[in-house]
Design a protein around this nucleic acid. Structure first.
Length: 428
RNA sequence: GGAGAGGUGGCCGAGCGGUCGAAGGCAGCCGCCUGCUAAGCGGUUGUGGGGGUAAAACCCCACCCAGGGUUCGAAUCCCUGCCUCUCCGCCA
């Protein structure tokens, strides 16, 4: 959520930012509603002040009456007078509440404002490549897709997964299951060594948490939800982990806070019919290790570089070629101010595919989730800046390892750093 | 699932429906005092919104889990929800 004061003071700037992000939202309407709300609020406050004064008087009069012997009620006039005031307040409150709902319904679907360094463009074609690491391997045979290799090795069974659950699910078997688990442990250990505290959060969360990080109300169609009682299945650990500090006022010296968490992630993938229908790339359920940071505003962009480097280092440890893309205004996520995607090379598709997305949300999520901190030498509170990134998506990493480490005989060599976790050197 | 108890400020803990934003204690901060000791004395310490100011001071409103209700007036009464605790049952 944006600061309504900021919108009021910089309406043209906000409108331009929305245009660059391909959003059409009536900012003038929002501001008009907000002005109206404020005006009504002032009226209500004034009336409440009156009511408080008169009610106090009534209290005093009652007290005096009790002390004297008269049992004539002298408060009748006052009571009648304040009753009118009270009724007016009540009807004003209803109007205000309606206005607030209307304002929230607009404010909650306004995306974050892109950082000045974000390239301008209408979609992903405007993304900018920042750097590459390593060269794609040269094969002396035609590299296969991971699903074909995995089928032959009998380590992933998509057919039976479809029987059990449906399309976009995977059944990992034997060394496949083992590889999945090895990667989870390797990544958590890696992140832990870099100062991220390990978290294992709830995977079903409430509506408030989903709203705090920005999935709701705008992206409900992407989420799985339970009926009774109502819970949402997390689409990323970002949701429960960022909400760890929702509603809190942190001490300055507690910052920065780094967390890493493994969770399964659940996504409807509505609207992506026909896209990545085969293989591990796009699943309704997948495992992911997430990195989350809570930092002071003045450090958040340095922290974004560090976060991205931490995620990228995992790929370097695994020996997987990647490139870092800076997302353009047209491609950046709803809550993010700046995002780097890390894309891993997939020989089976002869292209780079997103394996991590690292974002600085500035105070956008913090304002929604009310995550604040207090500086030791200053009055009042400020919103923290939140960041997160995948470190990494496990399923896509499995796909990348299978495709990059495939041998002519159909076997898959295990990267060095995973061998102690796997207990073997080759899947064959 | 059944039966109870409870949710108050950084923490502990009071609070007959009427100066209660909330006693008291602890912790913290600022002074003072004291030649010693985690001693004593005084003051001070929440969040949000609005007004005000050069900035303060200051003023108003709201907040005692959340949302409704009763009332001239609610931390205090009623309802609903959420959460915590105890006992019984069930259970990975």
């Amino acid at each position: 959520m944006l600061d309504i004061k900021f919108i009021r003071e910089n309406p043209d700037f906000v409108k331009e930012a929305l245009r660059l992000r391909n959003y059409t939202i009536d900012i003038d309407l929002l501001l008009a509603l907000e002005d109206e709300r404020k005006r009504l609020q002032q009226q209500a406050d004034e009336l409440r002040s009156q009511r408080n004064i008169i009610s106090e008087e009534i209290g005093m009069m009652r007290k005096l009456q009790l002390k004297s012997d008269h049992n004539i009620d002298t408060t009748k006039d006052k009571t009648a007078e304040v009753k009118v005031v009270s009724d007016t307040i009540k009807s004003l409150e209803e109007t205000i509440s309606a206005a607030e709902d209307k304002i929230a319904s607009i404010a909650m679907i306004i995306p974050n404002i892109p950082h000045a360094t974000v390239p301008i463009g209408k979609d992903e074609t405007a993304n900018v490549e920042i750097r590459r690491w390593s060269e794609p391997r040269q094969f002396n045979f035609t590299p296969l897709n991971h699903w074909d290799i995995a089928k032959t090795l009998d380590i992933i069974d998509f057919d039976r997964a479809a029987k059990i659950a449906g399309a976009r699910f995977a059944l990992m078997k034997g060394h496949g299951a083992r590889l999945e688990r090895a990667l989870m442990n390797f990544m958590l250990d890696h992140n832990g060594a870099r100062g991220y505290k390990e978290i294992f959060p709830p995977i079903l969360v409430n509506r408030q948490s989903m709203t705090g990080t920005g999935q709701l109300p705008k992206f409900a169609e992407e989420l799985f939800r339970t009926a009774d009682p109502e819970f949402y299945l997390v689409p990323t650990a970002e949701v429960p982990v960022t909400n760890i500090h929702a509603g809190e006022i942190l001490k300055e010296e507690e910052l920065p806070i780094y967390y890493t968490a493994y969770t399964p992630c659940f996504r409807r993938e509505a609207g992506s019919y026909g896209k990545d229908t085969r293989g591990l790339i796009r699943q309704h359920q997948f495992n992911k290790i997430e990195l989350v940071k809570f930092v002071k505003p003045e450090h958040s962009y340095d922290e974004l570089e560090g976060l991205t480097a931490d995620a990228a280092d995992i790929l370097e440890q695994l020996g997987l070629p990647y490139r870092v893309m800076l997302l353009s205004t047209g491609d950046i996520g709803f809550s993010a101010a700046k995002t780097y995607d890390i894309e891993v090379w997939l020989p089976g598709q002869t292209r780079y595919r997103e394996i991590s997305s690292c974002s600085n949300f500035e105070d956008f999520q913090a304002r929604r989730a009310k995550i604040r901190f207090k500086r030791a030498d200053k009055k009042g509170t400020e919103f923290v800046h939140t960041l997160n990134g995948s470190g990494l998506a496990i399923g896509r990493t499995v796909a990348a390892i299978i495709e990059n480490y495939q041998q002519k005989d159909g076997s898959v060599v295990i990267p060095d750093v995973l061998r102690t976790y796997m207990g073997i050197e080759v899947i064959k």
